[in-house]
Amino acid sequence: MTTDATAADTVRRGKNRLNESEDEVLARIEAFRRRRPRLIDEVITLAHGAGGKASAALVDAVFFEAFGSPTPGDPGDAAVLERPAGRIAMTTDSYVVNPIRFPGGSIGDLAVNGTVNDLAVSGAVPTALTAAFVIEEGLPVQTLREIAADMRAAADAAGVAIVAGDTKVVPRGAADELFITTAGVGVLPEGRRLGADLVEPGDRILVSGAIGAHGMAVMLARGNLAIDAEISSDSRAVNGLVEALLDAAPRTRWMRDATRGGLGTVLNELVHASGHGVIVDDEAVPVAPVVRGACDMLGIDPLYVANEGMFAAVVPAEVADAGLAALRTLPGGESAAIIGEVVASPSDIVAVRNAFGGTRIVDMLVGDPLPRIC
């Protein structure tokens, strides 16, 4: 930073050289101090992660342009939010999807929607997010702009603000184009509580939409499978759907978004946490025919395929139809369905019943059939 003595000396030299007044020279110095670097690079370089002018230019031209700044002119080291009344929910997640753009979405909207959804199914009303970027050297700046725009659009659709972030650049080969970590905060309304301990035998299992689209869309986008199918990811924020369900069925017991491991995994988490069992009607589970066909060709059970825009919920039997009707009135909930019920016995087991009366057990996955899908 320029000292007072240095500034005064600069003023004297400026007056002698340009015959400017002292006020004019000081104004020129102040304008120089406030000047922000311009982004002129077309690809990310290591300099963009060094914390200097290139870093400032990248943040200004890509992230502030996309998300805005909560404190214009003084970014600071933290966003200051008004403290809302009630309990606070927080969550964080990292996104390493490959490829970073796929039919129906990108790593950008995925990073926003995934964190918003984790808050929503916890019963919280999402309010603000942070985002941290690990960028591989050589990534085109235009690609980064497009991802940031996807994030802004997803945040606007979900009604949340992206209020803080961080950027790191790593050498070529040290990452796969772009990794994003988001954290989110939400407010739990007074008296709202969800949990597996509230679940009772006789409760119904409800899903907000069709399963399997996201995982299959990402897998096919990699281009290394001889399958030609038009499958788009279901990546979307579900907070609107969650609130609709809770309005129609305020005694909803439990919710979970079925991301990695799919619906089968979250139902297993439910039975292990509640001590009850779950019976699922195979024919009632909504799966798009093209998704089911792709899963059959690959030998993958749709119940284990990741989703990014649907959730499972447990509701009392007497309000299940009302909850279902509320979901079906909203975009993203058209395929909502009641797929099964909670049972006392057999406990700790998820069983799927087919149309012929036979059953099969759906256990926890041991490995990951579709890696790098979120």
Rank of each mutant, 00 (worst) to 15 (best):
V314I: 15
G333Q: 06
V160N: 06
V169R: 02
V342E: 10
G186M: 02
A124I: 02
G275D: 07
A174Y: 10
T130L: 07
S94T: 15
A237K: 08
V314W: 03
E137Y: 02
R360E: 13
V314R: 03
A132L: 03
A7N: 04
V218Y: 05
P189Y: 06
G264W: 06
V343I: 14
D296F: 09
V305P: 01
G86V: 12
V207A: 13
G108P: 01
S69C: 14
A183V: 08
A155C: 04
D9N: 14
D228T: 15
V266P: 01
G212I: 04
R292P: 00
A153F: 02
V199E: 03
L225Y: 14
P250H: 07
R28V: 11
D348C: 08
A66D: 01
I147R: 05
A132W: 03
L327R: 00
R33H: 07
I29A: 10
A161W: 03
V352H: 04
R83Y: 10
D197G: 13
H276R: 11
G165L: 02
D23L: 10
R360A: 13
A313V: 03
I227F: 06
L194T: 05
L330C: 04
L178A: 12
N354H: 11
V97W: 01
R353N: 07
S55F: 10
G191C: 00
H272D: 15
S347N: 07
P37C: 05
V112C: 05
A158M: 01
V287D: 04
V350W: 03
D247V: 11
N113R: 05
F32Q: 13
R253P: 01
R192Y: 04
V170D: 08
G165R: 08
K168Q: 15
K53N: 12
A322H: 07
I147W: 01
I147C: 03
E318W: 08
I361T: 15
L46C: 07
G323A: 07
G209S: 11
A294G: 02
I361P: 00
R17H: 14
F179M: 10
R17F: 13
L303A: 12
R328F: 03
F102Y: 15
D156E: 15
G123K: 09
L81M: 11
P316Y: 12
I373M: 08
D176E: 13
T6M: 11
V11F: 06
F64P: 00
A154G: 10
R172W: 11
A31T: 09
I231V: 09
R253I: 08
A248W: 05
G223C: 04
V121L: 05
R101C: 09
A312W: 00
V185K: 03
A336I: 05
F63M: 06
E308H: 13
D257Q: 14
P70L: 03
S347C: 06
A131Y: 02
L330M: 13
L267P: 04
G49A: 12
D363G: 13
T167C: 10
V362G: 04
L263P: 01
L324A: 12
V218M: 03
E42K: 15
S345G: 09
V287Y: 02
E24G: 15
G104A: 09
G76E: 05
G51T: 09
C295V: 09
W254C: 01
R83Q: 13
M364T: 15
R145S: 06
G86Y: 08
F102Q: 08
M297P: 00
W254N: 02
T92N: 12
